[in-house]
């Protein structure tokens, strides 16, 4: 799945020349869809590895590693916040398939937003163009959320429920 997402990101989404505002970062679906029982250290290291692969293939100087590692680190906290349960412990939700549609939507939205805030603000490295950065972030996030939502609905949900 990780490889598919990286290939889609690099060969399809990075080549969509619609606008400089539209840059959906869909490969974060890999981090979003990691099993919930993955240990925090492995979640973070796998996220770092994903960022590193994208950085090497797109020539970005560590930007994806920074954003992905942070997302991997904060994922347990985001999961707790959107689901209301701790990812570990007695009341833990054991799998993504147990999420209601509402929780799934907010989980995807929060993860995509957390990643893209770090990515786009670090890329612009300036407060001068803050409105442009916010617009880029919103337009790109809508594209990424829609893609990941349908990716989950069409391909992943059936696999998770088995």
């Amino acid at each position: 799945m990780g490889l598919t997402l990286v290939l889609l990101q690099i060969f399809l989404f990075d080549n969509i020349a619609l606008s400089s505002y539209f840059h959906p970062l869909i490969y974060v679906a890999f981090i979003i869809l990691l099993p919930l029982d993955t240990k925090p250290v492995w979640t973070m290291l796998l996220s770092t590895a994903m960022g590193l692969v994208v950085d090497v293939m797109t020539g970005m100087g560590g930007l994806n590693v920074i954003a992905c590692t942070a997302l991997g680190f904060f994922r347990p906290m985001i999961l707790s916040a959107v689901s209301g349960h701790s990812p570990t412990g007695e009341n833990a939700i054991t799998g993504l398939h147990r999420f209601t549609e509402k929780i799934m939507f907010w989980y995807i939205t929060a993860m995509v937003f957390c990643h893209s805030v770090i990515y786009f603000f670090l890329e612009s490295l300036s407060w001068d163009h803050i409105f442009r950065t916010i617009l880029r972030l919103l337009v790109s996030d809508i594209g990424a959320i829609l893609f990941i939502w349908y990716f989950v609905k069409l391909f992943i949900e059936k696999i998770l429920k088995k």
């Binding site: 990075d14 080549n15 969509i16 020349a17 606008s19 400089s20 505002y21 539209f22 840059h23 797109t58 970005m60 890329e123 612009s124 790109s140």
Partner: peptide, 9 residues
């Protein structure tokens, strides 16, 4: 063979 316009770089 490849080009992008959506990054700053």
């Amino acid at each position: 063979v490849q080009s992008t316009i959506s990054h700053n770089r």
